[in-house]
Design a protein around this nucleic acid. Sequence first.
DNA 1: CAGGTGCATCACGAAAAGCGATGAATTTCG
DNA 2: CGAAATTCATCGCTTTTCGTGATGCACCTG
Lengths: 300, 300
Amino acid sequence: MLDVVDVELRHLRALAVIAEEGTFGQAAARLGYTQSSVSQQIAALEKAVGGPVFDRPGGPKPVRITPLGEVVLAHGRGLLRKADALTDAVDRFLAGNGRIDIGTFQGVSTLILPAVIRRLLEEHPGCDIRLSDGTARDARIGELDLLFHDGEVEGDVEHVKLFDEQYFLITGAGTFAAGAVRTKLLDDAPMIGWPLTFHQRWLERTLARAGARPRFVFRTTGHETILSMVRAGIGWAVLPWLALHAHDAWSDDQLGIHPLKPAPTRELSLYWPAGRTESPLALRTREIAVEVARDLAAQM
Amino acid sequence: MLDVVDVELRHLRALAVIAEEGTFGQAAARLGYTQSSVSQQIAALEKAVGGPVFDRPGGPKPVRITPLGEVVLAHGRGLLRKADALTDAVDRFLAGNGRIDIGTFQGVSTLILPAVIRRLLEEHPGCDIRLSDGTARDARIGELDLLFHDGEVEGDVEHVKLFDEQYFLITGAGTFAAGAVRTKLLDDAPMIGWPLTFHQRWLERTLARAGARPRFVFRTTGHETILSMVRAGIGWAVLPWLALHAHDAWSDDQLGIHPLKPAPTRELSLYWPAGRTESPLALRTREIAVEVARDLAAQM
DNA sequence: CAGGTGCATCACGAAAAGCGATGAATTTCG
DNA sequence: CGAAATTCATCGCTTTTCGTGATGCACCTG
């Protein structure tokens, strides 16, 4: 007899305003309706809840809420608050302050992602950014909004290429003359690298394909640590341009930096699920990522 | 642009059901609408929130909620829960499990009110009974639903007479021969009574009007205590029939119980505000009070 | 007892909801 | 690769609802 959707938000708002104003007419003025419309709204509400919500004394006396009306009003205010919260949340979402799930892949984007997130938080301080570093073997887009990756991505996705990441040989200063170094020379060379992450595996596979199977004398995480080891003469390293850029390695006269021939190069792309409606925040994040990548690529 | 009442509960319910069922058609079947109607409801919702809430892949694939849809759905479920709570509350209220404010007046109804409340709680274990013992000088109905009182009540009220409360003289056994005692004989007699509550004041005024100004040698609260004092021979007492009934004083051979001539009699009535819609619980409580009073009066 | 106030009701036009049928897009299957 | 199937969107159409303005009715006030 009493259905949930028979009582409408419009009715509850009328109820609340009348309770404040005291008369149907004043409430109608505040709501932008006519008195007769408000009267009918309350009639509809009373039909929906099964009893009168106001006593109408008649004459210039204000109406008075009934016990039933108080029950409805108490809950109705809660409903109206929640409805306001909904519109607020939608407004914030449409303004770009929503939630976004960004995936990366075992350090694929350790250097570009922080820059993207910094800019994102500057623009949208209220947004809810969730990063997940996929440790799974296969790259899946799943529930992600965006995925930084360099390999192929399963599923129905679209992507944009961010830049080509070129790797350089880092040695102690003076080990080689300035200029490119043949990759083959790295074969059996003492080298410092990362533990066998997805990233590192790819690098070693690529080197091997060019005929270089270095001896990894030390594995550690952190580009800065690796650079220190090179400075200490423990071995050489092969690092991407972004790592050198981030640590200002070019101006370090203890280090020698050489392009490799052939140069290990990796294409970093940004993937997102195809055919899904994207959130404004996801769209904006993509723009930012492309901009950041363009800026970085311009300096290479 | 985005108004609170543009999003309707009906739309949110459709959203929630579609999110569960996966297709518009199944949701429509569950909701008792046609597919086309559900489609239009979602279209209206999308117009209200300013963006699509579902991706329609086309073909036999289920629809998929968008990020915006998730925002709306998360809040929408809350709204629907609150709407359910509202209808629950209304149902309970109409079934008689609401709140009721009952007023009494300085012990006027210490004997009938507990019986009424016991029966009320038996019928409606979930109801919220609030008693207020008015210590104010004047009896006002105020925000009360019901008021037990014997005097006049200010304001626009209706009332029903519950019973005539007759007072009896209680003495030690054998003090008087069985039968009525002339009230005048109480003049200057040693007597035990209540402190000067509204109740007691009325009693002493009534006795005085009949020519009896007893010496109150002890004042204490509690009818049982007063009866004990009478048994101990400290003095006499004048108590209403209900007090004697409650403490089974008629079968106490240490006591002598005598009607008074003229008999102090008081009319106890139940008042409620006129012209206000009453809650089902208030109506029922009135019925119960009348029944309880009738049962008691039958035994007098 | 007239005047004023305030809600209810009526009639009407506009808007919206719901329905059935049809169309368009996509997947699936042969 | 084309036919069948599935699913949502759209189009008239009818019914219902909403909002308005005018009017009526009840009640209070002077």
